[in-house]
Amino acid sequence: MEIIQYLGGALLIMGSLSLLIASIGLIRMPDVYNRVQTGTKASTLGAILSFLGVGLLSIENWSETNWIGRVIILIIFIIITNPVSSHILMRAAYVMKIPFTIDTKVDKLKEDIENKVLEEPKDE
């Protein structure tokens, strides 16, 4: 089962690299909205790859108990909960009227609020 060990290690390294790049992005991005974007990147692919790597590394013998099932459950829960929490962060930033960076091209949400297509999102 050598090859599975190597595969697990490779996945773990790829996951940590993804997390590293995301944290570089957190520093480099100009405003809060783009920072949240790179934040979700970290916790999706980075966490999924790291968990898969840990799961594969825990396999030493197929007959013994290993962590693959638990790792799959962890990945499913991250996929379900992560977008909800980051969406709430982003929406809260928008409701608090934190300004966009100067490079921002369009803001359809603001246009629609001004054209009275929908009412302004509020704290609930």
Binding site: S18, M29, Y33, Q37, K41, F100, D107, K108
Partner: peptide, 24 residues
């Protein structure tokens, strides 16, 4: 995976080629 590679390129390139906005 495709979108991750795309964002990684943007973060690592020196002039930070982003073009953000809110679309409907």
């Amino acid at each position: 995976v495709k979108a991750n590679i795309d964002v990684t390129k943007r973060i690592l390139s020196p002039n930070l080629p982003i073009n953000p906005g809110v679309v409907k």
